[in-house]
Amino acid sequence: MLLNPPARAPRPQSDVAGPVPPGRVRRRLVRRTWLLCLGLVVAACLLVVVSGAVGSVAVSPVQAAQIVLGHLLPGMPWMSDGSLTPLQDQAVWQFRLPRTLLAGLAGAGLALAGALMQVTVRNPLAEPYILGVSSGASVGAVLVIVLGSAALGGLSLNLAAFAGALGACACVATLARKNGTLSPTRMILAGVALGTLFSAVTSYLTISTSAQNVVSVLFFLLGSVSAATMSSLIGPAVALAVAGVVSALLARSLNALMTGDESAVSLGVDAARLRGLLLVVASLLTGTVVSVAGGIGFVGLVVPHVARIAVGADHRRMLPVTVLGGAVFLTAADLLARTVTAPTEIPLGILTAFVGAPFFLWLMRRGDAERAGFGR
């Protein structure tokens, strides 16, 4: 006689398909954030080594790493074998490493500026290029190139670019104000219109200057880090450090602002004052980057949105991923710009536009504002 098999014990409720407890989701996202940040740091280090090996002077990745470590850790046996020539050392340390580091700083700064602007207008389509901030910074920088620093009261290229970015932000904020508050939709529309106007100004300045300045202006407007030096890293590094500290301190307030002004006020956040501070910080980042790397668009659009998809909309997790992702993205783009059509070089703005413009259209088509944490 066959005995009926014993009934299988029911599975615990936690294993049954259903909603995952919020605590488990949060721990999973935190673990993913740490792993992703670690992976991005490793990728950035590898890009530094590979970029140091690419160029007209033959240097292997191992030799590039030896040169960098030899300068960072003098007295260590990194360069004691005598196989490295002074020309190789100069190529890596004085030319290739500064441009790689500048590309990383510029990418991190533009990505962070884009993330802050997207919270300011509560729209994932916002970024310095689209809101006209990059164009305003370009106007200030081009005025210095065309007219000279003396004509602008002795303003340096960096200060003129920052002033242009801050002026563009002030114009956008003024035009977007409705009933005493900033309208996110009006900010997008005002930014697009002012960006077009500023681009027309830079075009006029370009055609009205000498032929020698035209090449410099055009190459500057398209974006490049080929003229980077160690001293040119100071401005972007300081701006990124200041903006990073401010953003980290305001991460919870950014989360509140993203849910809407009424919710933010109920949580004790002064939405109007916070928006003004975010615009100033974003202007500082954008103006500093534009002054040393030119007009590079769409970094602030692509990277923050990908970071939100990867680790969620909480700015305590999203902002570190955004900064590191922007550094890796633009460093890889610079390496690609140097190698695709070697020995000539593609301006960075062209490569980022090839990636960013289709992403912008895809983002509008899919309407991922709610899924990215906006529009609630």
Rank of each mutant, 00 (worst) to 15 (best):
L105D: 00
G75N: 10
V62M: 11
A44I: 01
L324F: 07
A327T: 10
A239W: 06
L46N: 02
L2G: 11
A126Q: 07
R26W: 13
Y204K: 04
T33I: 07
A141E: 05
S247V: 05
V133P: 03
V215Q: 15
G325Q: 09
A211C: 02
A58V: 12
P304K: 04
R252P: 03
L36D: 07
A272F: 03
S135V: 02
A241L: 15
V25N: 07
M117K: 04
T120A: 15
M364T: 11
W362R: 13
S83F: 07
M187A: 14
Q88D: 09
M79H: 03
A173T: 11
G132D: 06
S226C: 09
G276F: 03
V30P: 00
A237D: 06
L233H: 09
V265P: 00
A150P: 03
F198P: 00
I234N: 01
G18A: 06
L205Q: 10
T352H: 09
T206Q: 14
A170H: 03
P347T: 11
R317Y: 09
L335G: 13
S56T: 14
N158R: 02
G109Y: 01
L361R: 09
T288D: 02
G164W: 02
V142Y: 01
A168E: 04
G260C: 09
V146Y: 05
W93G: 01
G356T: 08
V146I: 10
S263V: 14
I309K: 14
G195I: 04
A327L: 07
V280G: 10
W34G: 11
L319R: 01
A53W: 05
S208G: 15
L240F: 08
W362L: 15
R376K: 12
A353L: 10
L361T: 11
R99L: 08
M117F: 12
G244P: 07
G373N: 05
L84Y: 09
L363Y: 06
P347L: 11
L69F: 13
V133E: 08
G82M: 08
T331C: 14
C171H: 00
V25Q: 12
D89E: 15
G70W: 04
V48M: 13
L278G: 06
T259S: 13
G107F: 02
